[in-house]
Amino acid sequence: MEQILELFLKNGLRPLSMLPDMAGLERVVNRSEIAVLLMLHFRGKMTMTALASELGAPLSTMTSLAQRLVRKGLIERRQSGTDQRIILVQLTDEGLQLVLQVKATIEKVFIRVQAALSADELNQFLALAVKIGKAVQERETGGTEAQTSKVRNIPIED
């Protein structure tokens, strides 16, 4: 379940908006903030740069989101113990409680999906969801072979 949810988060897909139980939680935090909280739950402490990269958002956007979450008491920002220039963000206890509510809501939906599908259908669904998520994550290659950046030598005349 976490693998599928993480693929959705990284690709900007918003499966949470389809869940009726999420309406109450979205009064406290919006979907982008939920994505940040879930990613911090999955990864633990992260730098702002790593968090922005994982969620595919610009650093400036992630900084604004983090500031809102700090004001709401859901995450905290701290300097790294090894390098004072590095700021790490992590969930607070209140943030963890909210993430656990979100995960419980999602798990209820997956239980309903499991009940509706046979074991074979469920395995096919999960395999296809992961395959689709990976395909969406890959950059366009323009063909069957992956493009690689080529180093070009430029002659310099004296």
Rank of each mutant, 00 (worst) to 15 (best):
Q67N: 15
M62S: 11
R71F: 12
R78Q: 11
K72S: 02
A57Y: 05
L69A: 04
R78W: 07
F42L: 10
E54C: 10
R78C: 08
R68D: 08
Q67A: 13
T61A: 11
R71T: 11
P58C: 01
L69S: 04
L69P: 02
G44Q: 00
M39W: 09
P58T: 03
T49W: 05
I75W: 07
K45Y: 11
L40Y: 06
P58Y: 01
E76K: 13
A50E: 10
T61E: 10
T49Y: 07
M48A: 07
R78K: 12
G44C: 02
L59G: 08
G56P: 07
L55H: 06
R78I: 12
A52S: 12
K45I: 01
K72A: 05
T49H: 13
T63L: 09
A66R: 11
L59P: 02
V70A: 04
S60F: 11
F42D: 00
I75Y: 02
L59D: 04
L51P: 04
T49F: 09
L40A: 03
A66I: 08
R43G: 01
M62Y: 06
K45D: 08
K45G: 09
L51A: 05
M46K: 07
L69K: 03
R43F: 08
T63R: 10
T61I: 08
F42W: 07
L65T: 01
L74N: 03
H41S: 10
L74I: 02
L40K: 05
L69C: 09
E76N: 09
M48H: 15
T61H: 13
E76R: 14
H41W: 15
A57D: 08
R71G: 10
G73E: 01
M62T: 11
E76G: 08
A52L: 04
S60Q: 14
S60D: 13
K45S: 12
S64A: 13
G73P: 05
L40Q: 00
M62D: 01
